[in-house]
């Protein structure tokens, strides 16, 4: 997080905008060449954000699925091949997946909150989202403890097992939420006026350039429909 300034940082709002453009390209059934174009742009953005590693992993996954689809699936009987249909669907909408992953891997929660505050999103929504994102990692830890505790007891039957996972999770969540809301209230979360953010966001030249590039691809994909592909 500390080295962020060295890399190209986009305003979260720009990230959402280009992701929307990407969706238009994908779901308007544009010629394939525009898919490749969007993916190239995203690959560049990943590298500029210093996230080349995640991009390589993502593209490697894509390549594996693509190869399997090309060479492996035709060899399988069609009944078995259908089992893998969703994988092929992921290939079809891959530019969107890349866009979503770009937002997730390059945006911190505080930047997101800051962007939401700038867009005047209702504070209740912003708070809920922030708590959700903060609570996800804690939840994983809790589940691990509960599974440990369960395996020390002989618990049988699906409904019984479900209940045993649910009770501590939900009780724990209720407790944590109670304590968290006290700690937030004691730090003035109920202040009715406008709030600010330490991590500021704002539009810069790079936001304009990137947004323009994606818009250009999007418009071109419409113009070229029927000519290419």
């Amino acid at each position: 997080m500390t080295g962020e300034k060295k890399f190209l940082a986009l305003d979260p709002r720009t990230k959402f905008l280009i992701w929307l453009f990407t969706n238009v390209v994908v779901f308007s059934n544009a010629p394939r060449i525009f898919f490749t174009l969007t993916m190239t742009l995203y690959a560049l953005l990943f590298i500029l954000a210093g996230k080349a590693g995640s991009m390589v992993k993502l593209l490697a996954g894509y390549a594996v699925v693509l190869l399997a689809q090309r060479f492996l699936l035709p060899l399988l009987p069609s009944a078995i091949a259908t089992i893998f249909a969703t994988v092929t669907y992921a290939v079809l909408i891959f530019p969107c997946v890349m866009g979503g992953m770009y937002i997730i891997s390059t945006t911190s929660v505080s930047q997101l909150i800051s962007a939401f505050r700038r867009m005047r999103v209702p504070e209740n929504f912003t708070i809920t989202m922030a708590v959700t994102l903060r609570y996800l990692p804690a939840l994983r830890e809790d589940v691990r403890h509960i599974l440990d505790a369960m395996s020390l007891r002989q618990i049988k039957g699906l409904e019984q097992r479900l209940e045993c996972i649910y009770i501590p999770i939900l009780m724990g969540t209720a407790q944590t939420a109670e304590e968290l809301s006290e700690s937030a209230a004691a730090r003035g979360i109920e202040y009715p006026g406008r709030k600010t953010s330490w991590h500021t966001v704002g539009f810069h030249v790079q936001d304009g350039i990137v947004a323009f590039l994606f818009l250009a691809v999007c418009v071109a994909s419409f113009l070229c429909k029927g000519v290419l592909g």
Binding site: N124, I127, T128, V131, T132, L139, T173, A177, S181
Partner: peptide
């Protein structure tokens, strides 16, 4: 805000 925090935690589940 308390409701929002509660919602956020359960929303994560």
């Amino acid at each position: 805000a308390k409701d929002a925090i509660f919602t956020g935690a359960l929303g994560a589940v």
